[in-house]
Simulated assay, not measured.
Amino acid sequence: MPEKPPLDVNQTHDLLLKAVGMIRGKKGASDLAETTLRAAQLTLSALAFGMLTSHEKKQSDNDAIISPERPPEP
């Protein structure tokens, strides 16, 4: 079976938003499940937004990810 090609920026962004959509509206049966779902929703949303802003700035790093090599912006 041939390997699928890597996802481009738009495909990756779409996949992140699809994952957010799958989580949105779901309720956890326990506090742990609920807080984990909300954290996942927020994290995936932040990654998708950071990816867009980084792509617009022509950066290779996602703005939503704090890298030890990159100093924080003011």
Rank of each mutant, 00 (worst) to 15 (best):
R70T: 11
K57L: 08
A64C: 00
P71H: 05
V9S: 07
L52T: 10
L42W: 01
A19M: 06
A46W: 05
K58A: 11
L15E: 13
D63R: 06
K57E: 11
M51T: 11
E3T: 13
H55T: 09
S60A: 03
A46Q: 14
H13W: 12
L15K: 15
Q41H: 06
A64L: 00
R70M: 08
L42Q: 10
R24G: 11
S45F: 01
E69I: 06
A29L: 14
T53F: 04
H55G: 00
L52G: 03
Q59C: 03
A40P: 01
K18P: 02
V9L: 07
L52M: 09
H55M: 07
M1F: 12
L37Q: 07
A40T: 10
L17R: 15
G28L: 06
M1L: 12
L17W: 11
K27H: 15
N10Q: 14
E34N: 13
N10G: 09
L7R: 14
T53H: 05
F49V: 12
P5S: 05
S67I: 01
I65R: 05
H13K: 12
V20C: 11
Q11Y: 07
I66G: 03
M51E: 11
E34L: 08
G50D: 02
P68C: 02
A46R: 13
L44F: 07
G25S: 04
N62C: 00
I65V: 06
T35F: 11
S67N: 04
M22C: 09
A46N: 14
L7G: 04
D63I: 03
G50Q: 08
G50S: 02
A19P: 03
V20Q: 14
Q11F: 05
R38W: 01
L15A: 13
K57V: 00
I65K: 06
A64S: 06
Q59W: 03
A64K: 06
K57W: 04
R70L: 08
T53L: 08
K26N: 07
E56I: 13
A40V: 02
L52I: 10
Q59L: 08
R24E: 14
R70D: 08
A39R: 14
A19C: 06
F49C: 10
E73C: 01
I23N: 07
E56Q: 12
P72E: 04
L15H: 12
D63V: 06
K18R: 09
A39C: 05
E34C: 12
M1H: 12
A19V: 04
K18W: 02
P6E: 10
G25Y: 04
P5I: 02
L37T: 11
A48V: 02
N10M: 08
P2A: 15
R38P: 04
K4S: 15
